[in-house]
């Protein structure tokens, strides 16, 4: 009864009229929080547009896309020819992946407490959460899109302490889990105890990974701790230099 009276007093029109600006502020704050800062990041993208990175790296990305597209067309033509000749149906996925969407890096926080990028392309350009982000040129994995706004996308880098990626060694296929450490070199924890690994081995995304396309280059083994328990561990030098990235490709 007392609670009901208090609620009725709160809902009093006079009080609502007196405090409506604060109510609007509160609603706005909740909306910004729920949308993961979408209005702020979109505003930032709009204001910073004249200062976005130049076109040099963008041209590299475009050339890489062109090469990938040509390879894909050649593969498709070959498979079409095989089909015409009555050959066996090509395996699914053999066509390769479509080239990604180019996006400028408009905010880079890879020092300190956060390991993330903001990209100048969002849902309007077709970006979706969960997409893999690679550097220009050869497909070197940088991170993963975690959220998008209409004009921007937020990327969690491989170095983020929350990042976990299934990877394997190119060549012998030893499987492992790449863990971000908050530093520039993530740690690779192998799943098997007996692993043949040495500095210089190339690490790629695992064919068993459900998060990333298989075979994307991640980095190179820098040092190995064979004595680690329960399985060997290694530090990985990433191929894509986050500090120098101005443009990326989202797949």
């Amino acid at each position: 009864m007392v609670l009901g009276r208090q609620f009725a007093r709160l809902a009093d029109r006079r009080i609502l009229l007196a405090y409506w600006p604060w109510l609007l502020v509160l609603i706005g704050l909740v909306l910004v929080r729920v949308s993961k800062g979408a209005p702020i990041v979109d505003l930032y993208a709009l204001l910073s547009r004249p200062f976005w990175p130049g076109t040099a790296q963008s041209e590299w990305v475009r050339q890489a896309q062109r090469v990938e597209d040509q390879q894909r067309i050649a593969q498709l033509e070959l498979q079409l020819e095989q089909l015409h000749q009555g050959a066996a149906r090509p395996a699914e996925g053999a066509v390769g992946r479509a080239a990604g969407i180019r996006a400028a890096v408009i905010s880079r926080r890879s020092e300190g407490w956060w390991q993330q990028l903001e990209l100048g392309a969002g849902s309007l350009q077709g970006l979706r959460p969960g997409a893999a982000v690679t550097g220009p040129g050869p497909a070197a994995l940088v991170g993963r899109v975690v959220s998008v706004t209409p004009t921007t996308a937020r990327v969690a880098l491989l170095t983020d302490p929350a990042s976990r990626v299934g990877v394997e060694l190119r060549g012998n296929g030893s499987q492992g889990l790449l863990r971000g450490m908050g530093t520039s070199r993530p740690q690779l924890q192998f799943l098997d105890k007996d692993v043949e690994v040495q500095p210089g081995d190339v690490v790629v995304t695992s064919s068993a990974s459900s998060l990333f396309p298989p075979g994307l280059i991640v980095g190179v083994i820098q040092s190995v701790d064979q004595q680690a328990v329960p399985a060997p561990q290694a530090l990985v030098q990433l191929v894509a230099p986050v500090q120098a990235l101005d443009w990326v490709q989202v797949r």
Binding site: V25, L29, V32, R33, S35, K36, G37, I40, V41, W113, W114, Q115, Q116, V146, S147, R154, A156, D160, P161, A162
Partner: peptide, 15 residues
Amino acid sequence: LVLGSLHDSLQTSGL
């Protein structure tokens, strides 16, 4: 409170 909440919404981590 307001500034901290808005800043938190710009981060991927839960800090």
